[in-house]
Design a protein around this nucleic acid. Structure first.
Lengths: 185, 185
DNA sequence: TGCATTTTTTGATCTATATCAAAATCGTTC
DNA sequence: GAACGATTTTGATATAGATCAAAAAATGCA
């Protein structure tokens, strides 16, 4: 089954007609390591899923890259600003491995929200779950030391460490690579 | 008009029947400064609005209080964990001024989501807006120094400074009161 | 008005993490 | 398996912010 449909189903029931229409609008593509899905300032707004691969979201602050999140297989995600508002993205989304992507554009989704109001239940559940994840990150940044933040990340995304270099992890944690290296010792 | 209904309307159209039923379930109460709306571990889960007053959400870490957010008049809020999941709250919500509150229980709301599926549109929009706010807080904690975080807060909630003491602000910013005092100089 | 309590500021010192530079290790390719 | 670039670690020093203690200022209240 389409991996994006599979994700939608986790949040609630989809009637057949709606599901069929969603499926028709889902676009598949594959990307090579290093390519971008989305660059800062663009309006590319989609929910998407990787059936294979790995991505990071990052932005620039004082000329340096800062990673805001990593995405692995079979999670649903999007760039919050362009997906939930009319504003363009302030972040870049880049593939860290060769990846296969299933995406649905927010414009298409909005049409379907109108046509199948029950679909809003799923949209609501997704946004609510995003809130939970974001809140955990806030608590981590607000209350934890560098070491604790590192340990939290390992618990949450244990595979990341094998797939991503330390510089990326450090930038996500908000510390320098040198500090992360010392922490790990 | 009921201040909570007023908030719901900001997010989308409500048909009359749904609106009437929501209104019937909204509870009004007033609380004195210092009283609590919700304590850690409880399941009290509601969306609510203050027509008058001020609240803070806080939790304990290593025996110290840490403020997670402040709520002023005519914003809709709730404690994310109990409102969006079955889990109890890890935070406490306390009134910092004598306040007047309009609240609707999530159980009631869930019933109405079932009865009036269009209502999910509003629920979705609210959760999406919460995501935006949370993301801004993440960026602030992730990338900004204490001074910058202080300036961001002033921009976002300028009245807070006149209504809340510095200790509360410092704890929200994740710094000590002494540091905040020096920053302001 | 004066006293007690709370809040804010100041001072001295300590600690976690940043910065800059260089060395060590790992991975890839010819 | 030698040589190159990328990644990670180590070292020396600097800095933002924490901590603990106390003084100063503001606030509330009898």
């Amino acid at each position: 089954m389409n991996p994006l449909i599979q994700q939608f189903r986790r949040y609630g029931h989809l009637n057949e007609a709606a599901e069929k229409e969603i499926e028709q609008r889902i676009k598949y593509f594959s990307k090579r390591k290093g390519e971008h899905f989305l660059k800062e300032g663009q309006h590319v707004s989609s929910y998407f899923v990787l059936s294979k691969g790995l991505i990071r979201a990052y932005f620039f602050k004082n000329g340096r890259e800062l990673n805001s999140w990593f995405g692995e297989e079979n999670q649903i995600f999007g760039s919050i600003l362009p997906v939930y508002t009319e504003r363009p993205s302030f972040e870049n989304i880049q593939f860290l491995e060769d990846s296969e992507v299933y995406a649905i554009a927010v414009d298409d989704l909005n049409e379907l929200y109108r046509k199948y109001p029950e679909l809003n239940l799923i949209g609501r559940k997704i946004a609510e779950e995003v809130c939970i994840v974001l809140e955990e990150r806030i608590i981590s940044l607000h209350t934890e030391s560098a070491i604790e933040r590192y340990q939290s990340l390992i618990k949450l995304q244990p595979n990341l460490l094998n797939r991503v270099n330390l510089g990326h992890i450090a930038s996500y944690l908000g510390i320098t690579q040198e500090t992360l290296s010392r922490i790990r010792r």
